[in-house]
Design a binder for these strands. Structure first.
Lengths: 204, 204
DNA sequence: GTCTTTTCTGAACACTGTCAAGATGGCATG
DNA sequence: CATGCCATCTTGACAGTGTTCAGAAAAGAC
């Protein structure tokens, strides 16, 4: 049994994660009950406890799945972007925000605060997308003849700006954007921010 | 009765908000129960429903209080900063993150997603801190002989970066920072990001 | 003094996360 | 094949939750 065993149900571990994901499409993360997930998987309320220690662990699994999906989408977007040019970073950032806007509840689960220390599962799953960012910034620096520069502050700034605009578009106080006189939809605002960020990075 | 009336309890509206705030100091936002708040206020479980339509409305009140507090702290930090210089903006940003780090649960309540449209109470309360940001960026532009420039993309970028680093420091996958080789505490990371941001804004 | 309105309590409902005890069925060993 | 084992699932329970509703109690109006 390489993966989870296939006993009575088949693969309940997988089925529960999928059921949770489906419910997150419509419901919000805060109103996602373990019992509802079990119901959707046509299983009793206590069944999940043979595959996850508690609700948090299911959410961790869902979060990990989300990071994998996010990574693949960012990677695809970066590959489609203009090679070498800074458009690569901007495309990655746009993909990040696009994911958040397309799957808001899932995204919030990915960044929900774990009770104690963060689950190592989630940390491990989020590692590749972070690596993608690091790699992108470093490649961009090399492409701009600034390979010797310390990349770390720029990495922090990029992640903060991208993650921040995603969060603000999801949960931020609404009506801030219109009040600015920008009548753009959310995706366009995200593009504007990533573009401004890229400009500001390039400007020396 | 200009404010909330003082009937049986005195001012239960105020007392409930205070009790909620106290509980948020130790508990996390997700484990804050309306019943526990009522208990802390020495009142039956149903009493809050005469002052708030539901739990969400209490949280909205707590969130609004948070934005007021945040605004005062940012304003104080900006006034203490070097006049005219760009340090004003950086100080404001640092104060923003400092608030988030000092009151993480409260901060999360302020930016939690409301069920439907955002509560107008929260929107109104968050307006002044947004105005502080707008004003700061515009003043900074004037101080740099760039008054004619469109401030809006910069405003978005600043808010996104500041809010983003706050969120990442609170809920982000841990062990990202050490993996970067930066052995700084959270506050120092926040300062680094705001400083990098200010640099990048100044660089033309 | 009554009368009314606001505030609070007590009990109830449906729901939640979680656990202990038993039923069920696949697996390997005899 | 029979046997036993053990992972899996169900049933039923417990404490706790948000919310509602009928009534008690207290404050203000007349």
């Amino acid at each position: 049994m390489l993966f989870r065993p296939k006993y009575h149900h088949g693969d309940l571990h997988r089925a529960l994660v999928d059921a949770g994901l489906e419910l997150l499409e419509s419901r919000d993360a805060s109103e996602l009950s373990l019992r509802a997930v079990a119901r959707k998987a046509k299983v009793s309320a206590a069944a999940p406890y043979h595959h996850f220690a508690n609700k948090a662990e299911l959410l961790d699994a869902i979060a990990a799945e989300g990071f994998a999906l996010l990574e693949s989408q960012i990677r695809a977007a970066m590959q489609d972007a203009d090679e070498g040019c800074g458009g690569e970073l901007a495309a990655g950032g746009a993909a990040y925000v696009q994911f958040a806007l397309a799957h808001p509840s899932h995204f919030r689960v990915m960044f929900r605060k774990g009770e104690e220390e963060h689950a190592p599962v989630v940390d491990a799953a989020s590692s590749p997308v972070f690596a993608l960012l690091v790699e992108g910034v470093e490649r961009w620096l090399r492409g701009h003849e600034r390979a010797e520069e310390d990349a770390r502050p720029l990495i922090l700034l990029c992640w903060a700006a991208i993650h921040g605009i995603a969060m603000l578009l999801l949960d931020g106080p609404s009506s801030r954007w219109e009040k600015l006189g920008l009548d753009l939809d959310k995706q366009a605002i995200a593009v504007l921010v990533t573009r401004t960020l890229a400009e500001r990075l390039t400007a020396s």
